[in-house]
Every structure is written in structure tokens, then in C-alpha cells.
Design a binder for these strands. Sequence first.
DNA 1: CTCAGTGTTCAGTG
DNA 2: TCACTGAACACTGA
Length: 265
Amino acid sequence: MPELPEVESFRRQIEEAIRGKTVKDVEVRPDSIVFCGESPAKVKKVFLGQKVKECKRKGKYLWLELDQKPWPVFHLGMKGFYVIAKEKPLPSAKSVKLVLEMNDGTFFVFKDPRRFGRVFLMDDPLAEKPIGYLGADVHTELPSVQELKELIGHKKAPIKSALLNQETLAGIGNWMADEILFQSGIDPHRRCCDLTPIEIKRIHSKIRSVTTLSVDAGADDSRYPASWIFHHRWGKKAGKISTGEKIKHSVVGGRTTAWVPAKQK
DNA sequence: CTCAGTGTTCAGTG
DNA sequence: TCACTGAACACTGA
């Protein structure tokens, strides 16, 4: 689920559901991996009795600003998600990591079936380790074309790897990178330093449009334009885009990559 | 039964 | 030292 559009969409739902409310009860399901070694008791103490002032995001990280620090910072990993509910999850509910009961009876639930997600406790999320090293957020602080050129123009890595690198730009994941390069008409294997200024300009424009469109669609992929490769990239057998050209799959930047050789040079 | 996957980190290489 | 690559991590579903 979680690339920038999905995380931004969760952020908005979370603000809507629990902003300004106070945490009345906390259930932490012990998991030293997801909670980075913090004890359940400590995690519980961070939330209990605190008012949620804001829910913020940078790249794929999201955090709650509470009355007191430290603040909880979440990363959804590959399969993590949040649920806003009116009822408490049953003890038997699988992959639940954290449940917050707010003072109005709303429940905030964090689930992570694959345990690649993380919860960190931080005093200054924007300055500290993972988030502090992120590049500019492609939704809220997209660099100019010129800045993008300076950021990637000299790199020897494939353009797809550069787009996936969160220290270069924050928020793009596997499907977004493929979508951006598909719409830019650029082969994902191309080295950054071989791209022309015109091509970098095209990539810049598509970073903006793919991000904006998917965020505006609330990360509901059924609302993404029918022309997007997104709708066809997973059917690995005989995959074709809407105009009939064949989709090829290869590995770039360590990730499965879907691209259309007939359209991407 | 085996393998890939909407991600990140870290050891290893040049 | 730096840029880059590939494996490891944990678990589910095809």
C-alpha cells in the first residue's frame, strides 16, 4: 500500500478522525521489531492522556504531534495500514500492533501483517535520523527543474534507482517510479547522467502530475486515469497497456520494474 | 511447496 | 570517502 499518496491519504483520515482528541486508553501488542526495541510500557506511556495536535507527513513517514514529546513516528513498510473504527479490535485480530482509544470512543488502529513497518519515538522527527536524511517531499516541496537536474544529472545509477532513493526525493516508491518513467517515455534502465535536459524536464513534470493526481484521488487506484500503466503492471502474463503495446518486466534498482519498450526509450 | 512483493538498511565492491 | 549494488529482513497469498 504505502507510497506517498497512500500515506498522505492516511494522514488526512487520521487528522479528520482524531485531531484535537485525547488518548483515553492504549493497547500495545508486544513486537520488538516494529517498536524498535521500545517496551510496550514505554510506548503506552507516550500516548496515554495526550492530546493529538496534528498529524504530519514527510515522504512515506507520518507522525503524531502530541502535547508532550517524544512523538510517535510511523513507517508502514510494505503492508502496514491504519484503521479508524468505532469498536475495539478483538484480541484475536491479526497483525494489530497498536490501538488508541480516544476520549470520544473513536479507535485508531495500526496494523502491520508483514512487520516491515516501524514505530519510532522522537523528540524532533524532522531533524532526527530517518526523516532528517530525506530529500524534498515530492508533494509538498517539489524541487524546480533546475534543482532536479543538480540532484540527479551527475548520477551514474539508473534513473529508476534515483527516483526510488529517498535521500534524493522523498515519497516515490516502486509503482510511482514506473508510472513516472512510463509517462515520461523513458527507459527505466537509462543512467541519470545520460539523460538530456529535455528528458529531465519531462520527468520533473510527471513527478508532479502523477503525485498530484494520485493524492487528489485519495490514493483510490480505481480513480487513476485509465491510460496509466498502473492498471496493467501486475498482470505479469501477457501484460499490455491500454493501447496494446506489450509490458516487459525486469529488475532495476533491486525492484521488479514494469515498462513498455515500444514507448520508453 | 516456492516465490514475489506499493520498503529500508547495511555489508561489500570498485 | 563516496556512489552504487544486492542481499537480508518477515510474512502472506498466488
